[in-house]
């Protein structure tokens, strides 16, 4: 640590301590309740209700949700979505299920290598990734960087298609945070990306525009088949 940094650190911590000391008399120790956080929606512990809630919430913010029963049905559904968006070039993550999808689609699309250049990535038509968690309460996908390289594929191309196994849907924000926190020693994963709908802005005369920076379209494919 540089001398300047050490000095600034001591000065700031010193000022905090001195000011808190002056306030000590009226600082009542706050008891933060350990009860569940207020505002948790009820009823989402039921699997079907949770799936329905996730879908309708995501659709209310311009996301699209479809469902497939089996892994085998993934490839045709993904191809259908890509065709609907006129996609030719795909930036895919390194998820384990992607090579199978790719193989069954043959030469219909152009697939970028996972180590493609930044220019290639910026020219891609769609990103294809998995998601590690779904949050029913808010219609949110959570991408965990340790498990998959999907930070950029889910962000840069104008269309993002994400596959979410329904078994990974949790009920509330609290459930998601508990699952993501990790043990205290290892802490959470380096990057957690939460996605609820496509990129949006209302910065020009409050008119909603989707896709100002991130994807214009977010399509979630819910997969019912349990993971192997």
């Amino acid at each position: 640590m540089s001398a300047r940094n050490a000095k600034a650190r001591e000065a700031i911590l010193g000022s905090i301590r001195a000011n808190l000391e002056l306030a000590r008399a009226e600082l009542v120790p706050t008891e933060v309740a350990t009860s569940p956080c207020p505002g948790r929606p009820a009823g989402l512990d039921d699997r079907d209700t949770a799936i329905a809630h996730l879908s309708s919430t995501l659709e209310s913010v311009a996301g699209r949700v479809t469902r497939v029963a089996t892994r085998a049905a993934l490839a045709p559904e993904i191809a259908r979505i890509f065709d609907a968006h006129g996609v030719t070039t795909i930036a895919a993550s390194n998820a384990a299920w992607i090579p199978a999808v790719r193989a069954s689609l043959g030469e219909r699309f152009r697939w970028l290598a996972t180590d493609c250049t930044r220019d290639e990535l910026f020219a891609a038509d769609a990103g294809l990734t998995g998601a590690q968690l779904g949050i029913a309460e808010t219609g949110t996908l959570v991408l965990v960087s340790e498990d998959e390289r999907h930070r950029l594929a889910s962000l840069v191309p104008p269309v993002h298609v994400a596959v979410l196994p329904v078994a990974r849907i949790v009920a509330t924000l609290g459930d998601a945070l508990a699952a993501l926190r990790g043990s205290l020693d290892s802490g959470p994963d380096p990057t957690l990306t939460w996605i609820t709908g496509p990129s949006r802005t209302a910065d020009i005369e409050l008119t909603l525009v989707v896709g100002v920076h991130g994807p214009r379209a977010l399509h979630v494919v819910l997969l019912e088949e349990e993971e192997a």
Partner: peptide, 17 residues
């Protein structure tokens, strides 16, 4: 639409970020 929870830079060359 987005929350990024960031805990440190990338740790391996093939990671993103």
């Amino acid at each position: 639409s987005y929350q990024s929870i960031l805990t440190g830079p990338k740790r391996a060359a093939d990671e993103e970020g």
